[in-house]
Write a protein that binds this DNA or RNA. Structure first.
Lengths: 231, 231
DNA sequence: CGCGAGCTTGACGTTGTTCAACTAGAGTGG
DNA sequence: CCACTCTAGTTGAACAACGTCAAGCTCGCG
């Protein structure tokens, strides 16, 4: 972890989320004075479930995994985040604790926004807080989908959905390659690592995907979509 | 369904949620002018997943079931609601669609609050919108718990948790009796009706509960809590 | 070279679903 | 009053889905 000088202010930040364009220069300046930027190496924990929530985090570089630490040391991955994403948490305005853990998957930069300056901005700026409400509602829609996905689909469908999610939202850089560890794929789809491996092998044997170590190439997106719908 | 006269205004409503005490008399009056109260008979649908979301609903009487209509005609019950509860939905400020279906379990009264008057109040009143953010975050905490519950526990644990939820939150009227249909218990715990029946029978055989038709008496709360933690 | 982390595989047991049949009770119409 | 029907509950047997355990593998790295 390395602290960065603050060459730029939130006011003219090039990583600014659209959401923050609703703030006045003055409001941004106050947020700017109460933030810091931190770099994480791959594998490091950014914040941990159960700890006190003092900051909102905005990912400005790298790749982050967000997961719930559940029962018997098994995790449920809620999703991955690329720049520029806000990673808050439902502790805000409630118990001010983190309810999830986030770790860096690649070397990652995150902007830590102090929570009080954020809630002040929300109090002062109603357009901003309505956008925040909208954001939370989108998150909730995702949770609904995830609940149905994980409770009503078989393993093939869940893996197919996960692969398409990773392809569409996380590794959307032109080619059809995604990179993920087997354990992470299992934690994303709520199954055992061995089961995830077996499904991946089936997809490989039927040429739907090609596997090269941690890289998975999606050959047949249509077939994956079909399996995802109900496999 | 029977329309009620409007003898009272939101301003002095006795069913008002604490949240709404943050509004000024004027703001409440505007909401009052754009609301209506509707009675539903047991079994009737209050609003249905997929339809346009024009109103927020506040339950003032009765009992309501909220569920996601998932795959293959199977539902996932998110929870039950007693007066006084707000039942919104993540369509607010996003796609303005209902993402869940709600039905009346008993004869039920609901206050329909027009969405524009609500979002105007949110725009004007920052304390109100911060409380709304808080409310949404609490809902999200619940979704996290539900995700872990449904993906990481066995059937015994899920049924025990469901029984305790119904006892603590929905049927908290002194005695230890809850009332629920087997199919609803299955939809609440993401299992088949037959499986729910079998677990209930096991609990009955070991005297943890007593069953009389749709009524279930929880004899051994401690044991249920233990099973709920990891059964 | 040896070590450790992640990957892979097979055998096996458990968990949970499906299907089909049967039961009980509540309403309905003759 | 009796058939009839509909819904909800119940049960067992067969089956499928999924997890666990144990072993062996690969590969990068010190």
């Amino acid at each position: 972890m390395e602290d960065k000088k603050n060459p730029k202010s939130c006011v003219n930040c090039s990583f600014k989320l659209p959401l923050f364009n609703l703030l006045t220069e003055n409001q941004l300046e106050i947020i700017n004075q109460n933030r810091c930027e931190v770099r994480f190496r791959a594998g490091e924990t950014i914040f941990k479930q159960g700890t006190v929530m003092t900051h909102f985090i905005v990912i400005t570089e790298g790749l982050v995994k967000a997961y719930i630490e559940g029962l018997n040391n098994s995790n449920l991955i809620l999703g991955f985040f690329r720049p520029v994403s806000m990673v808050g948490g439902p502790g805000f305005l409630t118990d001010y604790k983190h309810h999830i853990t986030t770790t860096a998957m690649d070397d990652t930069s995150a902007c830590f926004i102090e929570i009080n300056s954020l809630s002040n901005a929300l109090k002062e700026n109603s357009a901003f807080s309505l956008e925040m409400l909208k954001y939370l509602n989108l998150v909730t829609q995702n949770h609904y989908m995830k609940l149905i996905e994980l409770t009503q689909k078989g393993m093939h469908g869940r893996i197919a959905t996960a692969l398409l999610y990773l392809y569409n939202d996380i590794f959307k850089d032109g080619d059809r390659t995604i990179r993920i560890k087997r354990q992470d794929l299992a934690d994303l789809t709520a199954m055992s690592k061995e089961s995830a491996i077996r499904i991946i092998k089936e997809f490989k044997d039927e040429k739907t995907i090609t596997v090269e170590g941690n890289a998975i190439i999606l050959n047949d997106l249509l077939r994956l979509a079909k399996i995802s719908l109900m496999g």
